[in-house]
Amino acid sequence: MSAFVVSEAVRCVECGICSFNCPLGIDVRGRARLGLPVAEAYCLTCGECVARCPRGTLRFEASPVFKATSDGMGH
């Protein structure tokens, strides 16, 4: 199932470890501190930011775009 990175802003201490470890240089902290998802289409969802966040701010969440539906047509 496809997933993307979401954040719980109240946990974020803005240390920047997430952005530092992103292999594509995405400003993960800029999203995390605002509670926004990492919505960049080119995000690899490699999990580096999720694994390295020392405060448990980030997690994967299933993307609704590709959620299975009863008719198989996305409806």
């Binding site: 240390c15 470890i17 501190r33």
Partner: peptide, 21 residues
């Protein structure tokens, strides 16, 4: 800069310039 992040700077988990948000 992130003051809670200073402990991670000491641990070598993040370089100093990255602490500046």
């Amino acid at each position: 800069y992130s003051k809670p992040g200073l402990a991670y700077l000491l641990a070598g988990l993040v370089p100093q310039p990255r602490l500046f948000s």
